[in-house]
């Protein structure tokens, strides 16, 4: 059965992503602390936080419906699935054809809808505000994200992430000016979708400015741990999607297991640089007012459209 090593690799890669994701978050936090002249926490701190949360007893509001208790698992499952179809290390992923880039955006949307529903479940004022804001950012970010992905899809003639990586990374080394615009747009969407500065502040303590944090105020213990973990995987998945689209060099082609160590090293390097860059951005920028988010994200959308038009112009 020639499928077997592929499936084994698929499972291994998914588990690897799930386990490695908090490390990336720890690295970003460490970099940010350095840049802000604080003494940095351990890079392993996210793991300790998760372990601590898992050990605690969950406290749930009396009014909670089943959706509230189910959502952390759904979020975690969605992010795990997303991590499974992104070619992080190699393109030989037998599950990848189950969902292309449009379905990938659909997975993120599914997670967002459930998070928002769970936020409204308890019936507190902050939960509703958080859900409303999250959906606002979501509907602004989704078209920009799709336009970015479409640019890559037009370049490679496919909406399969693995095929896109094969085309852009392995077959030709042409320079695509359209991708430059798309990359900036993608970066802006990444910041918005992952609740980072300038759209949201993951370490805020002010309830009135919260977006993502306001949605999960009612969660505790293992449920909170799963959500935090899912957030880490989402950041990891977005970073690796960005890498796959714009810096695909080093990702191992299908059936070439000897390239894996190199791919792992390349991934570590790219993520280390990307995480440091994210920390730098978060240090340099200030959080935008919520109603400037539409401007920010429509800029991203227009950049992505420009990228696509550039591609059409340079091709013809």
């Amino acid at each position: 059965m020639s499928y077997l090593p592929d499936v084994a690799f698929q499972v291994l890669q998914s588990v690897f992503v799930v386990l490695a994701a908090p490390l990336l978050l720890g690295w970003v936090n460490q970099c940010r602390a350095w840049l802000q002249n604080r003494s940095a926490p351990s890079i392993l701190l996210p793991y300790w936080t998760l372990a601590k949360l898992f050990h605690k007893d969950a406290v749930i509001a009396r009014d909670a419906s089943p959706i509230f208790r189910l959502t952390p698992y759904i979020l975690f499952g969605c992010m795990w699935l997303a991590a499974g179809i992104v070619p992080v290390l190699a393109t030989g992923l037998p599950f990848a054809p189950a969902a292309d880039i449009i379905a990938l955006v659909g997975v993120f949307a599914l997670a967002r809808v459930f998070a928002a529903l769970a936020a409204m479940d308890i019936g507190t004022s902050f939960g509703g505000i958080g859900a409303r804001r999250e959906m606002l950012i979501g509907f602004l970010a989704e078209p920009a994200m799709l336009m970015t992905l479409f640019t890559a899809a037009f370049l490679s003639g496919s909406t399969q992430l693995t095929t896109i990586v094969e085309t852009l990374g392995h077959r030709e080394f042409a320079i695509h000016p359209g991708l430059a615009f798309a990359a900036i747009a993608f970066l802006m969407v990444l910041l918005a979708e992952n609740a980072r500065i300038p759209i949201d502040n993951p370490s805020t303590h002010l309830e009135l400015t919260m977006v993502h944090e306001a949605m999960i105020l009612e969660y505790s213990a293992r449920h909170l741990a799963l959500i935090e973990w899912a957030v880490a995987i989402k950041l990891f998945a977005y970073m690796t999607i960005g890498i796959a689209l714009f810096l695909p060099w080093g990702i191992a082609p299908a059936e070439d297991w000897s390239a894996l160590p190199l791919a792992l090293a390349a991934l570590a390097l790219k993520l280390a640089l990307g995480g440091a860059g994210l920390a730098l951005l978060e240090t340099l920028l200030a959080k935008l007012r919520l109603f400037l988010a539409p401007e920010f994200l429509s800029t991203a959308f227009l950049l992505a459209v420009l990228g696509m038009l550039t591609h059409f112009l340079t091709r013809s």
Binding site: A116, M120, D121, M135, G138
Partner: peptide, 23 residues
């Protein structure tokens, strides 16, 4: 279409959250 789809999701979060969830 992407914008409309995302707005629909927002609208039904509103419907479901306001009507069925909460208190």
């Amino acid at each position: 279409l992407a914008l409309a789809g995302a707005l629909t999701a927002m609208c039904f979060v509103k419907v479901y959250g306001v009507a069925f969830l909460g208190r």
